[in-house]
Write a protein that binds this DNA or RNA. Structure first.
Lengths: 133, 133
DNA sequence: GAGCGACTACTCGGATACATAGTGTCCGAGTGTTCAGGG
DNA sequence: CCCTGAACACTCGGACACTATGTATCCGAGTAGTCGCTC
């Protein structure tokens, strides 16, 4: 039970984009340099973020990745779902007669977790980030 | 981000032990039959539960696995930690100058999640389970 | 000097290997029961 | 009838393959800017 490293990178990329360049497109090279990860691998995650509709890609010279219009409403949960997928983190594989009580409890916990993560917006963190640095 | 299937099995085993046989040792064969999983694989998880101190093993004929004394205080979190390990579910791999804000938020979420899971005792669920069946 | 066209440099994106963790299985070591034989 | 002892059946536990997911990489397709040539 661990969030993948990809999620880590994706969250930091989003934070960087919101805090430093909410309007201009940023190339992979710059982001990869800052994250300390290879460009080609990072682009894989960025592709996921594009497909999830969180950012958009700009081709050609001086291109890169840019935030979408409503970037100030993007939450941690959005990013996590984009990378990890939206599947539930617990699926009972047994066939009970009735509903699985274990499943219910964990699902409840998950719902609470997602609610918390959805309330945390990247933009809020960026404010804090800029103030601290 | 998903709990492993092993956690699923372990939780169901604990629920079964608490609800059906809090005192008598139960062999792997019975548990595996009920769970629909091979005996040898299930014993692997049971070993983890033993090492975590949640249950104890009884060797020899008519042996098996039995709950420990304070079984009525075992929570979901105990079982999950025994199987999944106690490692944090998010570790920032970058070297920031200051503390990582992303890390802080996710750690906060995790803490809340664990608090919830720790409040859910297996014994409580067993009451509900017995009442329903 | 202005417009057009091809070239070049830069970008993203999918297709392709490698490592690690989870899943599943096999077989050996240890322990308590049981049953038979002797006192 | 009771005690002793060995054989047996059952248990757990570690060591061994297989699969799936995550991690990392390479190379090709496409696009926009740019430079030179022509009118």
């Amino acid at each position: 039970m661990k969030y993948s490293q990809a999620t880590d990178y994706a969250l930091h990329v989003m934070l960087y984009l919101v805090a430093a360049a909410p309007d201009k497109p940023v190339g992979v090279a710059v982001l990869a340099e800052r994250m300390g990860v290879s460009q080609t691998y990072l682009s894989k995650m960025l592709t996921k973020l594009v497909k999830a509709g969180l950012i958009q890609s700009v081709s050609g010279a001086n291109g890169g990745y840019r935030l979408r219009r409503n970037w100030d409403d993007i939450s941690f949960l959005d990013v996590i779902h984009a990378i990890e997928g939206t599947a539930s983190m617990f699926e009972c594989s047994l066939d009970h007669g009735s509903e699985c009580l274990v499943q219910q409890v964990v699902a409840q916990a998950e719902q609470q977790l997602e609610q918390f993560l959805d309330s945390k917006k990247i933009a809020d963190l960026a404010e804090q980030f800029k103030a601290g640095s």
